[in-house]
Simulated scan of single mutants.
Amino acid sequence: MFKRPLNIAVPTAPLKIIALSSCQELGEMVDAHLVKSRKQQISQEHTDLSILGYDSDTYLVSHNVPRFGSGEAKGEIRESIRGKDLFILIDTVNTSNTYKMNGSDTNTSPDDNFQDLKRIIQACSGQAHRINVIMPFLYESRQHRRSKLESLDCAYALQELVSMGVKNIITFDAHDPRVQNAIPIQGFDNFFTSYQFIQALFEAEPEIVVNDKNTMIISPDEGGMSRSLYYASVLGINMGMFYKRRDYSRIVDGRNPIVAHEYLGNDVEGKDVFIVDDMISSGESMLDVALELKKRKAHRVFIAVTYGLFTNGFEKFDQYYKDGIIDRIFTTNLSHVPEELSKKPYYKNVDLSKYIALIIDTLNNDTSVNEILDPIERIQDLLKIHNEKVLK
């Protein structure tokens, strides 16, 4: 059960959740946390909010997105959502689902997932009291700014959702949170996963000592500086950074290829290093950084990313683990975790379902999310307890 203040706030409207097929497993876990927590809250407070559906046996809404043989689709909601505070969960980068198109199995793409979200919003027909979208990986968030004649897909997608009646958009560790400037007067919350990552690190590596002498935070590029600075600051340790030298004379796979990774920062020799970033896509850049750190005689290399996409598979990661270049990889379940990855000896999953349940509960009650957004005190308490245990 997640912790909430003793006095239960009255919900802004009865809660309902739609977990799209791309996010079904995570949605069921979130629902289970909410059901358990709310029933316990009512029991402890001796309060009856059953009339508002507060202690429902499930908050999940039955729905479907059937497809025609041509690949076209429609959204269906199979129960009433009139007057409900509706939260829609979507994993835009889950491409594991398939559908039939012209007789062939076709994997869903981020475009398919986003269109399914819009179909379900249309199916609401304006009946919900409020529509909130929880989109951990912002659709097209890697295309967040324009450098020449290019589309601005993420900004346009946010504006599109707002025009359809979405009141709040909740995301995690956005690639560039400034994209919210596209919808400046709409609700947009960008939550971070730093507390959960540090907790998972201590669980997976109970003997690790986190201090200046033994540990460092590493940013794999200049774009991740603010994220790494936050980790280094709350943990009280030093930070190093790599920057990418690119060949701007040519484009490979839609981007300028990296020529080399240059390092700026303190000596990493003999230290455990913790590389933090928002995502692993192909992983080439992250593995290059790990190799450079090993060349500089780092002790152990841990990688923590919010979204593990692994678009080029796991073969190279397996080899780097076998060769002792990487020691562990942490990713969250905010994006789909393939079963193959979950069985890897170097992999540790960071479960965010309870965190999402707390966010939904807080927003449904229209109470402040400031404490959830800024977990500095909880991180420092966790660090103190861990180091005292290890250094005994």
Rank of each mutant, 00 (worst) to 15 (best):
166 V>N: 02
104 S>C: 09
140 E>S: 13
163 S>C: 04
157 A>G: 07
107 N>P: 01
126 G>D: 04
156 Y>L: 15
125 S>C: 11
94 N>W: 04
150 E>F: 07
85 D>W: 00
141 S>A: 14
169 I>A: 02
147 S>C: 08
169 I>Y: 02
158 L>A: 05
120 I>E: 13
119 R>V: 00
125 S>R: 14
152 L>S: 05
142 R>S: 11
112 D>N: 15
149 L>T: 15
149 L>D: 13
157 A>C: 10
101 M>C: 11
165 G>D: 02
88 I>F: 00
88 I>K: 07
107 N>Y: 10
140 E>L: 04
86 L>D: 09
150 E>A: 11
122 Q>T: 02
110 P>R: 12
148 K>C: 07
104 S>E: 15
141 S>M: 11
143 Q>N: 14
110 P>F: 12
100 K>G: 05
114 F>V: 04
117 L>T: 15
114 F>W: 09
163 S>K: 14
139 Y>N: 09
139 Y>I: 04
129 H>L: 02
128 A>P: 13
121 I>N: 08
95 T>Q: 15
112 D>M: 01
102 N>D: 10
119 R>D: 05
101 M>N: 12
117 L>F: 01
116 D>G: 03
127 Q>P: 06
161 L>F: 10
147 S>I: 12
85 D>L: 03
162 V>D: 05
147 S>V: 13
85 D>G: 04
93 V>W: 03
132 N>V: 03
95 T>L: 12
162 V>F: 05
139 Y>A: 09
166 V>Y: 00
111 D>N: 15
167 K>Y: 10
160 E>W: 00
118 K>F: 01
123 A>G: 08
103 G>L: 06
96 S>G: 07
156 Y>H: 14
151 S>L: 09
96 S>M: 12
122 Q>E: 03
131 I>Q: 01
147 S>H: 07
110 P>E: 13
151 S>T: 15
122 Q>M: 03
88 I>H: 09
145 R>P: 03
151 S>P: 08
165 G>M: 01
123 A>W: 05
133 V>M: 02
133 V>A: 03
112 D>T: 14
126 G>S: 01
130 R>L: 06
155 A>F: 06
130 R>E: 12
147 S>T: 14
115 Q>L: 12
113 N>E: 12
85 D>P: 02
154 C>F: 08
129 H>G: 05
102 N>V: 04
147 S>Q: 10
125 S>F: 03
112 D>E: 08
94 N>K: 05
164 M>S: 08
138 L>Q: 07
104 S>F: 06
89 L>A: 11
143 Q>D: 07
86 L>N: 10
110 P>Y: 13
105 D>L: 11
155 A>T: 02
149 L>S: 15
107 N>R: 10
141 S>T: 05
123 A>V: 00
131 I>P: 07
142 R>C: 05
111 D>R: 14
129 H>A: 13
102 N>S: 09
105 D>G: 09
113 N>K: 08
92 T>S: 09
140 E>W: 03
98 T>I: 10
160 E>A: 12
94 N>E: 08
137 F>I: 07
139 Y>R: 10
112 D>F: 12
97 N>C: 00
151 S>C: 09
169 I>E: 01
109 S>H: 02
126 G>P: 03
134 I>K: 08
124 C>V: 04
106 T>E: 09
130 R>P: 06
108 T>H: 15
130 R>V: 03
115 Q>F: 05
117 L>V: 13
98 T>A: 03
145 R>Y: 11
118 K>C: 06
99 Y>I: 05
155 A>E: 04
129 H>Y: 11
